[in-house]
């Protein structure tokens, strides 16, 4: 392939190793030689090959699409979720690092995201929040014509912006309070803005926030770290919108939940 870099990066990795959720865990140092063209996950693949050859336990980390769309990859890299660029770890490339760098790799840290093994954490708390109300109920039947329900363009646009949230959890990882507000607000905005989402709008926001609190996420101090670290650029304007919906729901609706 033309254009591939010939120079190599000699890196020192400090990686969190933890056998299982009950293990105490510790940082372990590894040396790896990487090409600037590799993605961060490919660099870890190279290291894992090496570990397997040596008969050692490879490092567990989450990944799936490797295209920046599924939200499965995580990793707190050098003090920032998904590393130094505002993108997912699978889309982070080794060209963002320099020869001789030391790279810290840690799992998302949150009570609600317990470590399963090494760098893989259990993010099913997000699933339970979605189950609590992050959906729109529809009747089955004939397919509805496209554009049958009028939606103003800017409303559709805002909803789409919120809908780009991939549920990665970087917002929780970056927040000093391990708060899930950005994620929950993205879901609340995505559905609550659309006409189809109106029927369940006020029930949804109350249910999802109750579940979010039950999972043990922190509260919001409005530091803005989440939106700065979100690979999809979800705005904290959504958190303000969620707060509004929640207070209106509590103060004006009669439905008992």
């Amino acid at each position: 392939m033309a254009g591939n870099s010939t120079h190599k990066l000699n890196l020192t990795l400090k990686v969190w190793r933890q056998k299982n959720k009950n293990d105490k865990g510790k940082m372990v140092e590894y040396k790896v030689v990487a090409s600037p063209d590799m993605s961060f996950l490919e660099m870890l693949d190279v290291l894992n090959e090496d570990l397997l050859k040596k008969g050692e336990d490879p490092i567990a980390f989450d990944h799936d699409c490797r295209e920046g769309i599924c939200g499965m990859c995580s990793l707190y890299i050098n003090g920032q979720p998904h590393g130094p660029k505002q993108t997912t770890t699978c889309q982070l490339h080794m060209r963002s690092f320099n020869d001789g760098d030391t790279v810290y790799i840690e799992p998302w840290r949150a009570k609600a995201f317990p470590v399963i093994k090494d760098l893989a954490v259990d993010r099913s708390a997000f699933d339970r929040i979605i189950q609590a109300g992050g959906y729109v109920s529809v009747n089955t039947g004939v397919t509805v014509d496209a554009n049958e329900i009028p939606i103003p363009k800017d409303v559709a646009g805002e909803s789409m912006d919120a809908a780009t949230c991939i549920g990665c959890g970087a917002c929780v990882a970056s927040c000093k309070n391990a708060s899930a507000m950005l994620f929950v607000s993205a879901k609340v905005a995505h559905l609550g803005l659309l006409p189809q989402g109106q029927a369940e709008r006020y029930r949804r926001v109350q249910k999802m926030i109750a579940q979010m609190d039950a999972e043990g996420f922190g509260a919001c101090t409005n530091t803005g770290a989440c939106e700065a670290q979100c690979p999809k650029g979800i705005s904290i304007k959504n958190i303000a919108r969620m707060n509004r919906d929640y207070f209106v729901a509590k103060l004006t609706t009669e439905e008992a939940l």
Partner: peptide, 27 residues
Amino acid sequence: LTVRNRAARPVQYAYTQEGKSSAWSSR
């Protein structure tokens, strides 16, 4: 709130660069 927020992250990061994404006063 502070008690809850501290409890939400029982294990701290070994290395963080929080200053890159939020203002000192807010933290």
